[in-house]
Design a protein around this nucleic acid. Structure first.
Ligand SMILES: [Zn+2]
Ligand SMILES: [Zn+2]
Ligand SMILES: [Zn+2]
Ligand SMILES: [Zn+2]
Lengths: 144, 144
DNA sequence: CTTGACCTAGGATCTAAGTCTAAGGTTTAT
DNA sequence: ATAAACCTTAGACTTAGATCCTAGGTCAAG
């Protein structure tokens, strides 16, 4: 049996995070001591590690709640159910990747076009690009 | 002169967003009507478009505030100052990209290992991977 | 028997970027 | 003249995932 602080330390998270997971129906301690202290079993620890691993691949707590509800009742769920959750998340992640990649491309283009020197920013291509309604940075400027 | 609703509509944002930008020192209308209505000039509109373009390449409002403070006082700033903001943001974006790419890789590995069929999830490799302390999914399972 | 470490509950706070509500004043068109 | 559409303010609410605060109860060591 772990008390909250012991489990938190063992899994390198905050005590409050465990209380938060409990309040949010992710993980409740199997029992309480006479004085009301939370007592977690080895099994509870495994569930927590499941949660942390799921977080580690990008699932939100709401999604993890779904995964857990399958996990505790495997027999009544199909592989398909699990895979849908993973594939949905994967699409999600890929949408975010696409946006960030657009940001990256634009920022690189901006950065590459700017001399980065100590000259006045009055003709900085970065500022000019943000001022103008073109979404491309086409030319290097020259601080003539 | 645009009233708030006109400018918001022209730039396809919410009236409240303009009020929010004002409260957060990003864009204040150049004047007010006698009755207190916000009145935005063409110049104000350009600043708004600057903000929206900067958002479009991933800058946060706090970062945009910095960009704007350079923009309004270009002569006293160097290209270097602008480029630092862009390059810092680029690093930022690349760090997030790296994390999302890790998520993507893990999720793909999980997805590929799961049959996705209508069989019981009792031997689902996805759940097994999340239960175990290995971070790889090594084998296809067989619903024997 | 007291100090310090640990625990409890409940609610407040944080970040980011808005969105929404309430209660009222203004403008425009019919 | 009156309804519709617009505007004002201040402040509350939203999402996500915690983290912190208050005021107090418990427990082991010295
Ligand atoms: Zn330059
Ligand atoms: Zn430049
Ligand atoms: Zn299967
Ligand atoms: Zn499976």
């Amino acid at each position: 049996m772990y008390r909250i602080g012991e489990l938190a330390k063992a899994c390198d998270i905050n005590n409050d995070t465990l209380r938060f997971y409990e309040k949010n129906a992710l993980l409740s301690p199997s029992s309480r001591s006479e004085s009301g202290y939370r007592l977690y079993t080895e099994k509870d620890k495994e569930i927590l590690q499941f949660i942390l691993r799921a977080k580690g691949v990008g699932f939100t707590l709401a999604e993890i709640r779904e995964l857990l509800s399958i996990e505790v009742n495997k027999a009544d769920n199909a592989c398909a159910d699990v895979k849908v959750l993973v594939d949905t998340k994967l699409s999600d992640v890929e949408r975010k990747l696409a946006e960030l990649t657009r940001f990256q491309t634009s920022l690189k283009r901006l950065s590459d076009a700017c001399c980065g020197g100590e000259e006045s920013a009055e003709h900085c291509t970065i500022l000019e690009a943000l001022e103008s309604n073109t979404n491309n940075v086409r030319h290097e400027h020259s601080h003539s």
